[in-house]
Design a binder for these strands. Structure first.
Lengths: 261, 261
DNA sequence: TAGAAAAAGTTGGCTACACAACTTGCCTCC
DNA sequence: GGAGGCAAGTTGTGTAGCCAACTTTTTCTA
């Protein structure tokens, strides 16, 4: 076997990732650099395997990743076609406003409007899988890009994570990063997106008229064992962000739902 | 090898699907029936393989599907955990308003406001990968649930598919189904979601005030070779639909974007 | 020359095995 | 009782090979 350009199977070196992940990252760069042209064709799995010194199975794993991210098609009988250079974001960037803003080259900001502990409502008990009578921490924060208010974030943490958040400075930026550092592991998240009219609190904080249509994102994140870590309702001013999803016939992640969640 | 309950490897029988798809469908039913309980644990891959008479690889393929749909977690060292009974939709339901409405038990409706052929704009030439000076078909339709207007759909088809659509009755329902029947194959789609204020056309058609925040979905669908089949901008009345996405740390399909697309 | 048939090339799907990395529970030892 | 370590169980990653299904190219034939 040939030692490959992406650093075959040496743990502890170069990011500690699996080979197929490194291969996927490497191929992503080539694709984004236009190596195969837009709408061009990828080399065959077999030749890629030989080129990188891995087995066809590993190449297929890597390509499945790129496929799920919408970079390439795949279809029996013919070579893979480059779909576009849709740069996808890391999972982290999706969960953390701060991480996302930085990746965009913007200065993220946060102003905590309030932060309190209280008994969980029935809905929260359900969503966070809490025991009856459990206590949650509710945080209301205004998020900024530069000095411009963009989003109002209402997050509910279960007691365990809430304790970590409760002790932070009111202008501290990323709660997600703090939780990450404290050992919490984010593994899955569910997002629901719709429009709601701004209420008086939204209007006051975001500086818009009451009734303005805000883009609402409800997110719920869980750890690898399926235990809910947070539940959040974020309301964005119109025109500040959009969400985009890639879907393929083999795997469909996006769903359209009736009415309000 | 034992002949399995899901119909092992006999093409032409029972839906013509791959084994791992049938297995996934079968397990989805079990999960949704609460066979393993909510937050319960799945049997090990090995025991599933034995139970269904397939190899572990096939079981892993099936579980990867369920994982991508957010039904189960997975994590090295411990059994898979049931996340929830998140019923996902077929790819078809996401592309076709008609199919989606029917699956919700609602009566879909459509009223064509106009349908015309014209030269493509620069943006459309880019999005649909057309040659300069190509002709597109633009269709503006009001979509209903029951008798209630819900969405205004502005779709642009390239010449080839547009020809099929142009010859339809103004009240015909699903353009997607017609295209499907005419041999077009939808394989991938890209969706962007944000909010826009209703303009005078929107307000008139949907019966809302001008400036009302509408949920906008921009979709672009391609065939297996990556050739664009349609480009559409749909504007939903607030409160009528929401979109939901599942993401996991291993594969993330959703992205947050800056400003308008 | 045009159309049909054959051949070659490519991805999808499945099996089998091996080892690595991680979690969990049990057992021992202090 | 508690802490630590050990062993078993489980999923992740990688390899190798086989055939099926499908597309594209080439070749043959009328």
């Amino acid at each position: 076997m040939i030692e490959s350009a992406v650093g075959a199977g040496r743990p502890g070196v170069a990011g500690e990732k699996a080979q197929y992940r490194k291969l996927a990252a490497s191929m992503r760069l080539e694709i984004e650099a236009g190596e195969f042209g837009n709408n061009g064709r990828l080399p065959s799995e077999e030749s890629l395997a030989e080129q990188y010194g891995v087995s066809r199975g590993t190449v297929r794993n890597a390509l499945a990743l790129l496929r799920a991210n919408g970079l390439v098609t795949s279809r029996r009988g013919t070579r893979r076609v480059v779909l576009g250079t849709a740069r996808t974001q890391s999972f982290q960037e999706l969960l953390s406003f701060t991480a996302w803003a930085r990746a965009q080259g913007e200065e993220p900001g946060a102003r905590t409007l309030h932060c309190l502990s209280r008994p969980a409502s029935a809905a929260e008990t359900e969503a966070l899988q809490l025991d009856d009578g459990a206590v949650v921490t509710e945080v209301l924060r205004l998020r900024l890009l530069g000095r411009v208010p963009v989003m109002l974030e209402r997050t509910v943490y279960p007691e365990r994570t809430g304790a970590v958040i409760g002790g932070l400075a009111p202008d501290s930026l990323s709660h997600t990063e703090v939780l990450d550092a404290s050992g919490a592991v984010f593994a899955d998240s569910e997002h629901t997106i719709d429009v709601v009219p701004a209420d008086s609190v939204d209007a006051g904080a975001l500086g818009c008229a009451e009734g303005t249509g805000l883009l609402r994102e409800i997110r719920r994140a869980t750890d690898p064992a399926g235990v809910p870590l947070l539940w959040s309702e974020d309301r964005f001013l119109p025109g500040t962000v959009s969400f985009s999803v890639h879907n393929s016939a083999s795997v469909s992640a996006l769903a359209r739902r009736r009415g309000r969640p």
